[in-house]
Design a protein around this nucleic acid. Structure first.
Lengths: 213, 213
DNA sequence: CAGAAACTTGGACGATCGTCCCAGTCGAGA
DNA sequence: TCTCGACTGGGACGATCGTCCAAGTTTCTG
């Protein structure tokens, strides 16, 4: 094994740990399994990581960042001649596709989130993660409304939280049941339901028109 | 330690394991921890259980059954003078209350579900669990519609799946963020969105009236 | 080119895991 | 009352876990 700077080994070990978590679960990511996956001798582990916990903490941070980066580009769209519901549906379908493309990674993410929640030192990471997802969806919803000439009749952040909850539920549902058609129908229903919170803005003579609440 | 029939010890060990899973997570439910929690000597474990896996499998079955029983009575209602959305909101709030009453149990349930999903031998239990939840919600939705004089404009099973997904997302959201007001707002938004899939049945001159799709 | 710093590595440590043996004790039926 | 099956429980097994040490090798620095 050639000389490799500690920083590089860190990344390699984190990547290896991420693969193990996806394939075999958090419990399988032992120090020995991780170094074996990375093709390193055991002693390399404690040369670059102070402890197993240190790896897990960094693993959670890394996974969250990566997940965020993989989701963000999914939420854009250039369509302007569509209903809000159709755009939301598109977003959910694209997200579902990304889950189906690598189900093990997603299952690993769920496990890591729960693992993070157990440890007081990393619990805040999970919290921040959810906050950022909501912000992301909120921005996408605002952009979609602006582009198609709709507006939200309830605070956008609430719609965003609902969409995040639905996406979460849809993910778990697909991971558990694995039924494509079922999940697509769920996305469709959810998108239509979300649309109920929006209204066209331009035409002044729209149905009733009064605000919700 | 007095003589206790093996069947009783089984139940006591399962109950002890359930407490540990809720309090410290699935990984903490070792044979030694379980017998300590139950106040038994270590050897009692393998007198009543063939293996640790056997306990875990039975634990999953037991937890699923109990969870189902605790949710079922939440979904009833005698109200007839309300909108469908209000009834759905009530159901979600009651469910959320049950989660808040014992968050650790719920978190343990999520962990157990994922644990079950990892093992091919118990994965079907998780699948069945989701199917039964959906059936439960579907029955409640049909009952609510019949009682209030509404009807569903899309297949009820699809609405049920959406509600289950939302309840799931709401649970995770509350466990992660722990914000009561936020989760209530989420339940409210979701309930209103669900209502968009329903319509009053009696008055023939309702808004437009054409079916969805 | 010499010394310091960084990196590599086999091997071992104590702790904890699931599992099992076996000599003892108890209680119900003959 | 005796007996036999049911139950008890101390103790130990091999495996695996996280962690660490000390000696060797390579690369960088002055």
């Amino acid at each position: 094994m050639p000389h490799i700077p500690a920083a590089e080994r860190r990344e390699a070990l984190i990547a290896a740990a991420l693969r193990i978590v996806a394939r075999d679960g958090v419990a399988a990511a032992t120090t020995r399994a991780v170094v074996a996956e990375a093709g390193m001798p055991l002693a390399s582990f404690h040369y670059v990581f102070g402890s197993h916990d240190e790896l897990m903490t960094e693993l959670i941070q890394h996974a969250i960042t990566e997940e965020y980066r993989s989701i963000a580009p999914l939420l854009g769209s250039e369509v302007t001649e569509a209903t809000i519901g159709e755009l939301v549906y598109q977003g959910l379908v694209r997200y579902l596709d990304s889950v189906k493309a690598d189900p093990e990674r997603e299952r690993g993410m769920l496990e890591l989130t729960q693992y993070a929640l157990r440890d007081p030192g990393t619990a805040h990471l999970a919290r921040t993660q959810y906050e950022r997802y909501t912000e992301l969806v909120q921005m996408a919803l605002e952009a979609a409304a602006g582009r198609t000439g709709w507006r939200w009749r309830v605070p956008v952040v609430e719609v965003a939280r609902m969409v995040v909850a639905i996406a979460d539920g849809m993910t778990v549902s697909w991971l558990v049941r694995g039924d494509d058609a079922e999940s697509l129908a769920l996305a469709r229903s959810a998108a239509r339901a979300v649309e109920a919170h929006a209204a066209r803005v331009a035409p002044a003579s729209e149905p009733a028109g009064e605000e919700e609440r």
